[in-house]
Design a protein around this nucleic acid. Sequence first.
DNA 1: CAGCATCCACCTTGATACTG
DNA 2: CAGTATCAAGGTGGATGCTG
Lengths: 140, 140
Amino acid sequence: MIIDSDAVRQQEGSSKCAGSPEGTAQDRTALVRGILSRIGDKWSVMVICSLGVRPLRFNELRRAVSGITQRMLTSTLRALERDGIVSRTVHPTTPPAVEYALTDVGHDLQCVLYSLATWADDHADTIHTARARYDERTRA
Amino acid sequence: MIIDSDAVRQQEGSSKCAGSPEGTAQDRTALVRGILSRIGDKWSVMVICSLGVRPLRFNELRRAVSGITQRMLTSTLRALERDGIVSRTVHPTTPPAVEYALTDVGHDLQCVLYSLATWADDHADTIHTARARYDERTRA
DNA sequence: CAGCATCCACCTTGATACTG
DNA sequence: CAGTATCAAGGTGGATGCTG
């Protein structure tokens, strides 16, 4: 589906990364695409990070993730809940109290997101200067 | 900007993840959002993965990333080049030959993407069943 | 408090045609 | 070969009003 085999077959083992023992490049690509379509939207990461600190109720989350609307918070939470990344616990009081928390899977995901953040941290300067130089050259 | 401090301040050290020594949750969230807005689009990851195998020329890439249009390949490559994730080398022959390759930064990013893929691999079953159960319950 | 329903603007992507 | 330009379509997210 994703990658044509002819163009990519050679030098399959050229990656110097640790890990990544089995699975084709195509598989990996598809998997990453799947995750990104899940958490690559505008709000999922912020929700996950907020819940990573501690479980929160709906309106607590709304305040924590500043700028989000109820509509987007609702749909984001539903999507994450559907995939078992966050749990939703209803306490049948009046008024109702609903608590959202990261599941174990969600917590693992949060760890991976930290590795992403670490990458960004490590290369922030490089990226920034690269961007500045690129903009410099293309403005001319 | 991202996260309101009141709702999140407590229990800052509750994350059981390895790493992540300094930096606030807000910083991390902003960083991850930044990356995701860069590579969270429809094609960036596939391009990165393709170039991770070996450097490719424009039309090789177009064949490798099946389904992509010239327009999207061009804009994806420009964005990645701007951030110093891929390099663009023009060989002034006739017809012109342009080679795209991952930079060191891009290669590091590819490694992080592998950790994302590993997460997806590890939890694919859990997610799938969670999703099935969720759809089951909501259909009723 | 914790949502759902509706309508709408914009942005991303795709299709297509053309160029050095 | 390696692009650029233009136009159209669809999805994503925002604003608003209403409910148990």
